[in-house]
């Protein structure tokens, strides 16, 4: 077994200089047990976040209507990003009939690639966002949840509900450091054919990144700017 250096302080300084998993030692050429298990656990959290579902209790708390994309399973969701950009015909009819038309701000929530992101951030981000909209004098439509959505399903929703601005709160691809990171994608008048560079994003929303409570206020400010400047994406001046 190879023991690490006696020079503990120097080693500690090297370890502190990077989040990379260094100074971990080895037995033969293989990593020590604890550090090996730590890697497996971090990956397990990420995988469970991709494949896991948002618990029922979440929807009992928030009462968001649930709308589906044609992706019936996680496998289909992962393999067919094109289908995650659409809603089922039932989903389209539902929002046409039950959601407020032409709202100033439309809020949409989707699990995307991390259900944990929604579960752990919406409780803070959503009320903060509503407060922020109120303070800017903005009104919002009927918030709903899209199961297995991709960012570009904003366009289909925009086409049907014709909001002035739309914000989509969606789970990011989980990393090993954070499995519950969320993004807020925003767009002025999203419609079918909107190009990526017309969207703005605040990413890395989680407790170790952009603080969820602060994110609500930041999103409000960006939406206000979009409405004032009547544009979004690379042309938006923030």
């Amino acid at each position: 077994m190879i023991e690490l250096t006696d020079n503990k302080l120097a080693l500690e300084q090297l370890i502190q200089s990077t989040p990379a998993r260094i100074g971990v030692g080895c037995s033969g050429t293989r990593p020590k047990t604890e550090i090996m298990l730590k890697l497996r656990m971090d990956h397990a959290m990420a995988v469970d976040s991709v494949y896991g579902d948002i618990p029922k209790a979440f929807f009992e708390e928030f009462h968001f209507p649930i709308v589906q994309t044609p992706c019936q399973s996680k496998e289909m969701y992962l393999k067919r990003p094109d289908l995650g950009r659409k809603l089922t015909s039932e989903g389209e009819s539902f929002i046409r009939e039950h959601c407020k038309k032409k709202p100033q701000v439309q809020i949409v929530i989707s699990n995307g690639l991390s259900s944990k992101a929604i579960e752990s951030n919406i409780r803070d981000v959503y009320p903060a966002l509503l407060d922020s909209l109120e303070s800017y004098g903005l009104s919002s439509g009927t918030t709903f949840y899209v199961q297995n959505g991709r960012v570009a399903c904003m366009d289909v929703i925009g086409e049907i509900l014709e909001p002035d601005v739309l914000v989509m709160l969606i789970g990011e691809r989980p990393g090993l450091v954070s499995a519950d990171s969320m993004s807020a994608y925003m767009c002025y008048k999203p419609r079918i054919g909107t190009i990526e560079s017309n969207r703005n994003v605040i990413s890395n929303i989680h407790r170790g990144g952009t603080q969820p409570i602060e994110a609500g206020a930041q999103i409000g400010a960006v939406l206000r700017a979009m409405l004032d400047q009547k544009t979004s994406g690379t042309r938006l001046v923030i």
Binding site: R21, I22, L39, V177
Partner: peptide, 9 residues
């Protein structure tokens, strides 16, 4: 390091 690229994720 430990197969985990902390930059490219």
């Amino acid at each position: 390091p430990m197969a985990d690229d902390c930059m490219l994720n």
